[in-house]
Structures are given as C-alpha cells and as structure tokens.
Nucleic acid binder design. Structure first.
Lengths: 172, 172
DNA sequence: ACAAACTTTCATTTTTTTTTGAAACTTTAA
DNA sequence: TTAAAGTTTCAAAAAAAAATGAAAGTTTGT
C-alpha cells in the first residue's frame, strides 16, 4: 500500500512537470500549465490552499494563474455547500478543451496578426523588385493564415467529438 | 519616391516586429522569428552582416539563431559565386514551411510528451478513486494527443497544397 | 456595522531566457 | 604556411518574464 501511494505521487508529479514544460515550449507560463495539469487529474475540486501546497507556489502566483486559466475558459470556480473558500476544476472534456484553446489563441494572436498582415500587404507598391516581392509574399501569408484560421474554426465547429470526425473525413 | 521608400521600410519593419511578437507568444525566440521574417520577405539571399545591421543584433546572436533556423529546416545557406561570405534564404513556400514546422514540433515536443503520457497512464492502479481518475484521464489524454498528432501527419502528407486540399475535404 | 475568512493586486525580488562580444576556430588564396 | 576573411562558441551581462508577499480589497455571518 505504501509503495503504491508512492508510485501514484511519482506519476502525478511527472505528469504535472511534463505538462508544465510543454506549456512553456508553447508560450504558456509553466505554473499556469502545471495548475491546469493538477486540476485535470483531480477527481474533485481543489482549493487554492491545496494548489499552493502541491506546487509549492505563493498565494499571489496561484491567484493570478487561476484567473488567467478562467479567462481562457478552461478552469471553473466552484463553491461547496457550507464552505467559505473557493474550489477550482478544469474542463476535463478534451474536445472542448482543444476548442477553447484554439478559439482563444485565434482571438488573441491570429486575428491581430491578420490585421497587420492586411495592412502591410496592401502597401502601395509600383517600385522595386524588393517591394514587389514584399507585397507578394505578405499577401500570400495573409491568405494562408486566413485560410488556416478558417479551417480550424470549421473543424472545431462540430465541438462534440470533432477530432474523431476529422479522422473519418480525412481517411475517406 | 522618397515617401514611397519610407513606407516600404515602415511596412517591412512592422511585419518583422509583428512576426517576432507572434513567435514569442508561441515559444519561439523573438530574434529567431524576426530573422525568419526578414528572410521571408527578401527577394534575394541576405548576408549575416546585413541581418545584424537590419535587426541591430550581435554577430553571436545572428549566428546562433541562423543555426537554429537551419536546424528547423526552414532557412538555407547559400553561396554566391566569387563571394567569400555566406548568404541565407528562407523557405518561401508556405505549405512547405508549415509542414516543416509541424514535423519539428511533433518530433521535439509532442513525441516526448506522448512517451511520458504512456508511462504515467500505465501506472498500475487498483487503488482509490483519485488513482482511477488519474489513470483514466491520462489515458484519454494519451489517446487524444496521439490521434491529433497522426491527423496532422496525415494532413501534411499531401505536402503540395495541403491546406487547400483540406479545405475541400472539410467543406464536403 | 464589524471582524473573520478569504482573495486580489502590484511593487519588488528572483529566476529564466536571451544577448553580447571576444577568443577560438575554419576556410581560402597567395 | 601564413594571414586575411569569415564563422562559431560560450562565459558573462542584460533583459524579460515569472514569482513573492504584504497590503488592500471583498464577502459573509452575526
């Protein structure tokens, strides 16, 4: 029994660390990803106190990153009857999680980038080869990113089980 | 004519800055993304000297990031006849660029993460509800990430014009 | 209205990541 | 073989990002 508990703790820790590392490689702060990982594998809502304890982080850090996760719409606050403090749960449905992440990234990063691409690609150019190439390349990039963004939107529109449905579509 | 040149410089700069910012949000260092942006819009190969000059960065920084871009397979070294120094060009085909980036990210980040997910999800659990939930959730995550990774692989397999082909498949 | 219980904010500190620059290295041509 | 022209490396410095923690703010029960 003791050994078994140790193994669980070890596996849990490995998962949280790995998720944290993956997060930073994709531009998500480590703690934010770790909190998310922790909530993903918890079978019941977790208090801020417990998150701080498990990840050895400060109250401020926990609070800020929980707020960020809620802003992304992938972590929810919960209230337990008769309990003063707040508890947190993660969106556990992976299709839903992926949809929310992709929507947020599109809104926060892709859409603003598209706006700039549009701007710079419509620069009036009757000039040098360098200018012609610039306009040509940025126009192509605009079209590509726009198309990719739309495809992602279309794919995740199914919401329920979109990945499985995509697999079927592609295999055909 | 003077005004026109200024506008080009301005547009070019805006593009390079935006691409750099987008890069950091996705876990790619700013300078690396900026060098890539610069090469993407150059109609001819660029020397390290010119890159340093345009981006106001040191020789070491330029060298390291060019090496990284070449490791990703999205920037090439070129030699000009009768020139001692090296020149650099970016992969300008966007389909090809996206394929290479997705392949590298899969190899460097997704595959190792999958390995860990496999490990932790096969932890023997005959224990508590917490343990059962952990195994269940990590197993689901493993399946999901594996499937997504395979789909991406399949999509980019077409290489030539894969995005346009994907659009058609999905619309049907 | 008060105070206990809890959460949020943000200026400061710490950590991590990126950049620099000078020394070491490589290549080429005479 | 030498030196000039160029490139790479890596320890140290700088910059950027994240974390801390104490003060301010909020909510709830009496």
């Amino acid at each position: 029994m003791y050994i078994c508990l140790m193994e669980f703790k070890e596996a849990k820790n490995k998962f949280v660390q790995t998720w944290g590392a993956l997060g930073s490689q994709w531009g998500i702060n480590k703690t934010m990803a770790q909190i998310h990982a922790l909530l993903m594998i918890s079978h019941e809502p977790v208090s801020m106190e417990d998150i701080m304890e498990e990840l050895q982080i400060s109250r401020g850090n926990a609070s800020m990153n929980l707020r960020a996760l809620m802003d992304w719409g992938i972590v929810y606050k919960e209230y337990k009857a008769g309990e003063r403090r707040e508890f947190f749960t993660a969106e556990k449905d992976l299709d839903e999680l992926a949809v929310k992440i992709s929507r947020e990234r599109s809104k926060r990063e892709i859409k603003p980038a598209l706006k700039v691409l549009k701007e710079v690609s419509t620069m009036k150019s009757d000039g040098t080869e360098a200018e012609r190439h610039f306009v040509d390349q940025t126009t192509k990039l605009y079209d590509f990113v726009l198309k990719a963004d739309n495809v992602l939107d279309k794919i995740t529109e199914y919401k329920d089980n979109w990945l499985a449905k995509l697999v079927i579509k592609i295999m055909k």
